[in-house]
Each structure stands twice: as C-alpha cells, then as structure tokens.
C-alpha cells in the first residue's frame, strides 16, 4: 500500500467515523409539540434585520445564516430551533424560553465527532432559569466539560441568542 493510499484510507475512515457520529436525539417537531403539551400554536416569523444581525454578531461572533426565523409562542413562552457550529458541524438545539428565562434547552441533533456530552441533562440543567444581562451575557456562569469546549461554547451562545430573540419577538414590529 502506498503512502497516498494509506492517507486516502485514513481520510475516508475519518469521514465515515464523523458521519457515523451524527445523531438525532429528538425530532424538532416532537420537541415543539412536547413543549406545548402536544398542541403547538401556529409558527410565527421573525425577520433578522440589519440591527438585529449586528447584535447577533456580538453574541455568536458571526451573523445568523438566515434572514428570518420561525418560532412558536404562547403567552410568556416561546420555542426556538437554532443551529450553531461547534467545531466543524452544526449542532441543532431546541430552546424553550419562559418569562425571559431559559426553561429548557435540549440538543436535538449532534453531528460532531467529539463533544456530545453536552446533550446530557447534567450539563443542560445548568441553563434552566438563566436570563440575559444587558451586555447579552447569561446572568450565571456555565461550567464547561473537558474535551467539549467548543460544543459548550456553542450551546451557551445559542441560549443567549434564544433569550435575545425572545426579547425581540415580544417587541411589536
């Protein structure tokens, strides 16, 4: 086997190893339905205008890659389905916000090869009850997980983003 073949084989093995790690923990539709006890309201639309994208850049470090988002809202609660790249692949997260605080955060789909520990309740429970300060940071610190730094960072950013979007969705447009 030549060096080139060895490299190609290693590369292919790595690709399939990464693909094999892609895991759906809950379908997005099921998450939304569960958040509203099986009776989700009609989704609403929120346009991410230039001013909002500028704020989002402060939270994520980049613009959110779409121009508008659909979300579900009933009274003081809203549900958001958001994505952020951990290291190389997007992590899909469902977030329930209740009275401007995180009620629930759940990893719905994880595609990275490492850092999947962030899906466990021992980690996500830290976000429950967290709110957003004026500087767009959470009002509490989140303990990291060794070896999952980028995934922890991605979930923390998305929780801040959901709280920010919830606040904007409540402002009449």
């Amino acid at each position: 086997m030549t060096a080139r073949h060895t490299i190609a084989a290693a590369f292919t093995a790595l690709f399939f190893a990464v693909m094999a790690h892609a895991a759906v923990y809950q379908e997005a539709g099921a998450f939304v339905a569960e958040a509203f006890s099986g009776k989700p309201p009609e989704p609403k639309m929120l346009w991410l205008d230039t001013a909002m994208q500028a704020e989002i850049v402060k939270i994520l470090g980049h613009r959110y890659p779409v121009m508008r988002l659909r979300y579900w809202s009933d009274g003081p609660r809203s549900v958001w389905l958001l994505e952020e790249i951990g290291k190389e692949e997007p992590i899909t997260v469902g977030i329930v916000v209740n009275r401007q605080k995180i009620e629930l955060i759940k990893v719905l789909e994880f595609r990275e090869s490492r850092g999947g520990e962030v899906r466990h309740p021992f980690f996500t429970r830290q976000f429950e009850g967290a709110g957003l300060r004026d500087d767009r940071e959470l009002d509490r610190s989140i303990d990291g997980i060794s070896g999952a730094t980028l995934s922890v960072r991605a979930l923390t950013k998305l929780s801040r983003l959901a709280l920010y979007l919830d606040g904007k969705a409540r402002v009449p447009q």
């Binding site: 379908e27 997005a28 998450f31 989704p43 779409v66 659909r70 389905l81």
Partner: peptide
C-alpha cells in the same frame, strides 16, 4: 442566492 430561511418538518 442569499438564504432567507430553512423550513423543515417542524415548520410543517
């Protein structure tokens, strides 16, 4: 070619 939004099963 700019992305407006993504719609999946969750959005019906």
């Amino acid at each position: 070619g700019a992305i407006i939004e993504q719609l999946s099963a969750a959005q019906g």
